[in-house]
Amino acid sequence: MSARAAKKVKRNSPLAKAESRRFYLFLTPWIVGLVVFSGGPVLATFGLSLTDWSLLTTPHWIGLGNYQRMFSDEVLLKAIWNTLYFGGGATLASVSSTFLIAILLNQKVRGIGIFRAIFYLPAIVAGVGTALLWTNILHPDFGLLNFVLGKIGIQGPGWLTAPSWAIPALIIMSVWGAGNTIVIYLAGLQGVSVTLYEAATIDGAGWWGRFWHVTVPMMSPVIFFNMITGFIGSLQAYTLVLIMTDGGPSNSTLLYGLYIYRQAFQYFDMGYASALAVGLFGIIMLITAVQFLFARRWVHYESK
């Protein structure tokens, strides 16, 4: 019997059928959610991307017009570049730095719970407070950041007021606010077995050896998870720039998400906004797929 035939038999066996039934039973709430809360709206978005809907008038079918428009939209090109710069920078910076913070927060020292809460605070304090706080910290003349830089002899840049420093400033902010990534790492660290460290110690590994040969490979699936979801999140980000810079100066912080928001709710062009959303979806898909391709080289699944 060929392997294929064997598989077929297995698939049709009563046991397999029962498992399939259970699979769909467990999945029921999600499939309903998928169809109703995501599927319908997603299909609607695809449909609307083929119209000139202004949100206030009846939509008219314009075929691929919105998509053609995307190819000659210079502002969109700028937004894509900003978004890749911000998304890549923010994801890599926060995925790496929060990993170290999480290791620090996983130490068994007194009061660690309080420290964890403190490091998670920026993720809780959302919205206007954060925006105003950071405009103060980043102010070229009065800001804390340039004050500290000045103390060590560095003339700080204008940050949010300088086109070339605005995205780095946003990246710093997003690292600071990445409390969720810390929590996911902490959760992952609970699964790294003590015995592995013991074995490594007995083999004579120092702290670096234990970190590099035990922690990093054991945590690679979690790092990978944070990379994937970090990219997805930061490529869609827009609320903070909406409050803080509104895309300026010189469109240097015009992120893709902000451009969609503008088209929809400031220019009243929901059709084009929908097409842009489909475009962003495509970009994120592509980046995610590339990450999965490279994942084989570095993501370590122990018992494979």
């Binding site: 077995s193 994942a295 699944y301 122990e302 018992s303 494979k304």
Partner: peptide, 16 residues
């Protein structure tokens, strides 16, 4: 790709 880890399971972590 998403399915790969399905067949795996970290043997070392079981006991703890």
């Amino acid at each position: 790709e998403f399915g790969t880890p399905a067949s795996s399971g970290r043997s070392g972590s079981g006991t703890s």
